[in-house]
């Protein structure tokens, strides 16, 4: 297989993973109107939960089954403690509080897990790899990660398009006051959406933990790239996050090989180009 095809594969796989992280961010931003800088911390939480739970259960998928509900519950708690006070407030106040959360979570991380990088084992039944070229192999687990991301994306589409709670989310997004007038408790709805965002970020951190190493600050680059995805895709749009993330993944993979001197700016140049062509993002509402 030649370099171009391999890079397409790399780009799609990386893109699917950042989609998972960005989807939670775009939901919270689009529906709650909250700029959540601590989103990367929830990615980190997922990675460390996976580390601890896998050491007990011995299997990454069992730890996902336990970890995602835990992260969801944690999200409910954080929303109740902090985030609910931010609705309708100035973005600056939101940035201040969620930035403070980053600092707190980083300190908690260090106290609980320490500064050394850790590793989460790939389950032995997935330790195989696929031969791509005479010397290069592709780990099967990376394909599983891509599959898991697609699965969660389909789940999201189903929940949003075909369930009552999805209907409320869509309604809340377009007109929050009308939803409240109709007797829907938007406080509960928002708590659910925020917790779902936390759970999605944590799921991304957890499923990626065996191919990444788990270390302090692991969530920060994820936060930045997620914001880029949200801006490119259009705020609040899951579909936009999906295609935006794939675009970013491919741009990153090809930029590194074919434009190495500009590797660090390729992604941002792409963002600027999309914003010039379509200021609301690819799938954003014109505002």
């Amino acid at each position: 297989m030649d370099l171009v095809l391999i890079q397409i594969l790399n780009g799609l796989q990386y893109g699917l993973l950042i989609f998972l992280a960005a989807s939670g961010l775009t939901l919270v931003f689009g529906i709650l109107g909250i700029i959540n800088l601590s989103h990367g911390s929830f990615y980190m939480l997922g990675a460390y939960l996976s580390l601890t739970l896998t050491s007990y259960t011995g299997d990454i998928f069992l730890s996902l089954l336990l970890g995602i509900p835990l992260a969801f519950a944690f999200g409910m708690l954080i929303e109740w403690l902090f985030i609910r006070h931010l609705y309708g407030r100035d973005h600056l106040q939101q940035v201040l509080l969620t930035f403070a959360l980053i600092l707190i979570f980083n300190d908690l991380q260090r106290d609980i897990w320490g500064p050394r990088p850790h590793s989460v084992p790939i389950p032995s039944y997935l330790a195989a790899s696929v031969q791509l070229s005479d010397v290069l192999s592709y780990p099967v687990y990376r394909l599983v990660v891509a599959g898991f991301c697609i699965f969660l994306a389909l789940c999201m589409v189903y929940v949003i398009q075909h369930t009552r709670i999805g209907q409320m989310i869509r309604a809340g997004e377009s007109n929050r006051e009308m939803v409240e007038v109709l007797g829907i408790d938007s406080r509960l709805l928002f708590r659910f959406v925020f917790a779902a965002g936390v759970a999605l970020a944590a799921a991304a951190g957890a499923i990626a933990s065996p191919i990444d190493s788990v270390y302090p600050g692991i969530g920060e680059p994820v936060l930045i790239i997620s914001f880029v995805v949200v801006v490119i895709g259009g705020i609040g749009s899951i579909k936009g996050a999906f295609f935006g993330a794939l675009l970013i993944g491919l741009a990153d993979a090809f930029g590194k090989v074919f434009l190495p001197e500009f590797a660090s700016v390729v992604v941002y140049a792409l963002m600027a180009a999309v914003l010039i062509a379509s200021p609301g993002g690819m799938f954003g509402r014109a505002s």
Binding site: L3, I6, N10, Y14, L136, D212, A253, V257, S264
Partner: peptide, 13 residues
């Protein structure tokens, strides 16, 4: 940045 797959493919080539 810790996304290394693109570079690994290049090293292999």
């Amino acid at each position: 940045n810790v996304e290394f797959q693109a570079a690994l493919a290049e090293i292999a080539s």
